[in-house]
Amino acid sequence: MKQVLSFLFVLYWTFTLAQTQTFSIRFEPTYAAKPVVLNNLYILPNGNDSFQINLLKFYVSNIALVQTDSIVFTNPNFYLVDAQNRLSIYFDIPENIQFNALELLIGIDSTIQENSPLSGDLDPINGMYWTWQSGYIHYKLEGKCSACLNNNKQFTFHIGGYQGIDATQYKLSFNLPTNHLSAQLSFDVFAFLPNMDVAKECKLMLPGAKAKLYAQEIKKSWKLKK
């Protein structure tokens, strides 16, 4: 009898708790509504100047699946998304959950900023950590633009800042078809372009009002692709 019970238990366990399925998120960076390809030439809205993107990296964390306002699954991991080689992320979720929305944070929240494990995707060696003022760069965009006035015609946008009025991390939520196992999310890499004078502002490397504004503009551009 005991054996049968434990057998049943194992059966129950393997079929309910242990059964997982994979959820995937694909990120699609865009410019002028078209997918961005690293090192391709693009034209600025002024029609004269061209630019290319050499590097695009950003953090995604606090991923959760939601069933009408209550969280049914949370993913504790941090993901450094990289246009070079990691635009998709995958993680396992239990099979027996019901969900119809996806939540995620672009950036790293303040508790982790102040107690980072300093390893894996959060290892400062990834070049996403500010050293003279603690904190992760949430969004890093670098490249060349003929409009930039500096010697190398380079632009460098390091958007970060996590505390108080300078916080640039932001939460996104998208409705999904019930139990749909993937999401493709697009955003405009340069959504802040209309708010700036490209030639003069090819560089942003510190937290503050400008970083905050740029982050908010990018936030508005996120879309779930159907």
């Binding site: 102040e114 107690n115 980072s116 300093l118 400062p124 950590y129 050293t131 003279w132 603690s134 904190g135």
Partner: peptide, 24 residues
């Protein structure tokens, strides 16, 4: 400016006018 002693050393290590190194 530094929010934890564990990350403090990154500041002098990589500061151009202090130790001028990279972590790598």
């Amino acid at each position: 400016a530094v929010n934890h002693i564990d990350v403090q050393a990154l500041a002098p290590l990589t500061h151009a006018s202090e130790m001028g190194e990279t972590l790598q």
